[in-house]
Design a protein around this nucleic acid. Structure first.
Lengths: 164, 164
DNA sequence: CGCGTTTTGTTGACATGTCAACCATTGCCT
DNA sequence: AGGCAATGGTTGACATGTCAACAAAACGCG
């Protein structure tokens, strides 16, 4: 009756992939419906908002949004062009800069947050007991954590190590 | 000591997103290291392999790989250009065709499968008990399922409904 | 039957991200 | 010091996907 263990794991993977697609799609749709920027912007603005007042280096932002350095450059170009973020040259390291949230960026963030949280409530939070959420985190963190550990030698790329 | 419930759910979501990024990255890396096609191709070839011998309509493939119709057209263009798939006009419906796995496509699939399964074993399956896998599926399927149910009116796009 | 609507799939314009090559700076290390 | 590898970030070429508009066939119904 019970399924083959490998199949169980494959099913779990498929469930994971589908759930993520569904969720992202819903969040993205909800934001768009309110004429708000996409999810990636939210992640950046949010990270900056939570960070100390003196901003973040792109390098650190790269951890929040899973993006290669060049992808991040381009994302910041766009957000910056929209005036939601400033690039201020960093005194302690003339190679890079520090990214700062502008007033307009902070305002946009405050418009996005309720939409994000509301949709998340409908599509995710309300479907999970607190215990299940805890379990979920625990199990899935094991998966992401193993990437760092096991990344011994089958992962040559630097980008892969920086998985977010 | 115990966290705020909303924060628990947010953590769970972050764990989910990170785990998925990690997994996809590892699978993709492993395939590339063996000079094999990317994950999306695997999904298509696999779906065709499991399907009845007379192939599948693109429409049906669209469910397996979460892609818009145009995205699917382009993906099939590439796989077809690589000779792994044939487009055969469908007698019962002259609008579209049927997609068939070629010999070369089947061979490629058989080369990808062990790489896929091996990497998945390392990065996922081995980190989960059978019970946990079952639980994971159960909980996450609830999330994807709710999209169909709740899609009442906040989801105008057809693409959103076809979440895979 | 004949016409409007739905279904399938494609195409052009464009958005977003990757990879590889690159520049400038920093930080050792001798 | 002085040389040189590692770090932080950008850019060009390109891959892949979306959206909107479209074409063609299939449906369905008065």
């Amino acid at each position: 009756m019970s399924k083959n263990p490998t199949q169980l794991k494959l099913d779990a993977l498929r469930s994971l992939l589908r759930a993520r697609t569904t969720l992202v799609e819903r969040l993205e749709t909800a934001l768009r419906a309110d004429d708000l920027p996409p999810l990636a912007w939210y992640d950046v603005l949010c990270a900056l908002d939570e960070a100390p007042g003196d901003g973040l280096r792109p390098r650190d932002l790269g951890f929040a949004v899973a993006l290669t350095p060049s992808g991040l450059t381009r994302l910041l170009d766009r957000i910056s062009a929209a005036g939601m973020v400033d690039r201020k040259s960093c005194p302690s390291d003339r190679r890079g800069y520090v990214v700062l949230l502008t007033k307009s960026g902070a305002e946009t963030l405050e418009m996005m947050r309720p939409v994000y949280l509301h949709e998340l409530g409908l599509a995710f939070a309300s479907l999970l007991s607190d215990d299940e959420a805890k379990q979920l985190s625990e199990v899935l963190d094991r998966v992401s954590a193993s990437a760092c550990t096991a990344a011994g030698e089958p992962v040559p790329e630097p980008a892969a190590a920086r998985a977010a």
